[in-house]
Amino acid sequence: MLHKTRGIVFKYFKYRDTSIIVKIFTEAFGLQTYVVNGVRSKTSRGKIALYQPLTLLDMVVYYKDSAEINRISEVKCRSPFQSISTNIKKTAIAMFLAEVLYKTVKEEGEVAELFDFIFHSIEILDHVPEGFENFHLQFLLKLARYLGFGVESSEIFYDSFPEEDVEPVKQLLMNPYEQRIKISNTMRRILLDHIIKFYQTHIDTLKEVKSVKVLQEVL
């Protein structure tokens, strides 16, 4: 049976000579696995671009509850990126977020709030013109609530830190993405390390996050 749904690409893997297996977080069914045939062939005319991490999609899909892998009937990019694919800092942030999402979001079924949060966060990252260097920190702090282990206060990270270092975390928790928060590169790295460790205590599948190195090089 065919269904319409929005989707967010998390990751794809090469499959056979010209196909891929792609993990897409869908609004209708949560995290799903699809096989897409021929998308890597010379005649596909760049269709592989639709399955780059964090691409926002409009889809018509086949869905069978018992199937481990389903198929896509129709797909188009819902909101083409304006800057994520061209701004090296945003690209690094997107790579990092995609890796974390792939390793942490396993939900199927009713996921409306979680889906909307991720979808709109990606749109904000793409459109915010400046002051987005802390975006990944805010995203992870906000995402934790939707995953069931939300951060309510900065003390969970900074019981042993000077009081002046706690204030940036409070701001990251409370403020919207668009509000600029002044944090040094050193503090940004310390915060990220603590947040990742916090996630790792709650999610067994989040071990090494390889894209952190690239993120630290460009921010």
Rank of each mutant, 00 (worst) to 15 (best):
I124W: 02
L101N: 11
V100G: 00
K4P: 01
E108R: 15
F81H: 04
K210V: 15
E167L: 15
I195M: 05
E110T: 06
E68F: 08
A92R: 06
T33I: 06
S66M: 09
I48L: 13
D204H: 13
F149G: 06
I21A: 06
L114G: 04
L215I: 02
P80N: 06
V209D: 06
I88G: 01
F139K: 01
R188F: 05
V169A: 11
K170M: 08
H127F: 03
L56Q: 08
K23Y: 14
F139M: 05
V60N: 14
Q179F: 06
T33Y: 08
T55E: 08
S160K: 15
I24M: 08
H127M: 10
L191S: 05
S66Q: 12
A28P: 00
N134G: 03
F119H: 11
D204M: 12
M1R: 13
I84Q: 00
D159M: 12
I181L: 08
M1V: 14
R180W: 09
T91D: 01
T205Q: 10
Y102P: 00
E155F: 11
D116V: 07
E217L: 12
P168Q: 00
G148N: 04
I124F: 07
G7N: 07
S66D: 11
E167Q: 14
F135P: 03
K76V: 12
I156E: 07
S154N: 11
